[in-house]
Amino acid sequence: MDTNKNVLEDHTYDNIRVLNNKIPTWSLNIFYLTIMFSFVYLSYFHVLDIGDLSRDEYMREMDPNWRPTRVSGGIFSEYHSPMYDIENSVTPFVREKLKNYIGSNAEANDLIMYAMSRSDAETLKKLRATFPGLYDKLITGGLIKIQAPVESISIVALMDEASLAAGKQIFLKNCASCHAPDGGGIVGPNLTDDHWIHGAGIENVVKIINFGNPSKGMIPWRGTLKNEDIVKVSSFILTMHGTTPQVAKAPEGEKVKYPLEDKKAVEEVESAEESEEGVIENEDVDEGVVKEE
């Protein structure tokens, strides 16, 4: 085949003979190819600065208008993320999505749903202040079933067996470790008694599951559990009230008068919490929200 083949070097090393065959062309080709690729890659990303590096790419995914700003003088460049935006709780990402919606793009409905479902109560208030018309439209148009459980959205506890069974499964998987499988409470509070730390009733329960209260030990489940699952598990939790657990933890929180048909009992607790957080700025108050100082 090759004229070079089997050309023996005259020397042997401890009787090991060595041939001097050509280096296989395929391996050289791969080598040259990777070298060329490396030049193109490095020029594209670092010399010519055309391509988005990983962080830039991420930023742009979160905020299409984002432009890289690099701190000079350091080898490590500092980046800021729109997810970590101190000044504005309404992130550029959300704002961009909202603009899409104003363009009355049908698909964008989902996007704003997404944006809103992702926002915490504070952000939602700001959203409302920024886009009052849009916000109302969303609420009144019935587009939102259960998004972020803001006070204005009324949530009804589910009663059907399927949902409660699903809720029970979710409870056993995620909640039982702290609240005991029968709701008697371990690390977390007893769910069967008349006492509620964060307020009784479906709306409060949904709210505390959503946003949590890490300082008091409750984990936020937003993002981990889907909204409909949160409603299911909340509904299930309400059914535990009045049952007798094997080991009941001592009551914690405010005693709530049962039955809850008297809606004031619920709202008192709720509004008490709100007054701590600050007053809602928006003028057009939705039904069901009672403001108290």
């Binding site: 401890d14 090991i16 003979r17 060595v18 041939l19 001097n20 065959n21 050509k22 280096i23």
Partner: peptide, 15 residues
């Protein structure tokens, strides 16, 4: 390898 196989090294240049 060349010892055990009792074969010459294929290509010293490649090595």
């Amino acid at each position: 390898v060349p010892k055990a196989a009792n074969r010459p090294v294929y290509s010293y240049r490649l090595a």
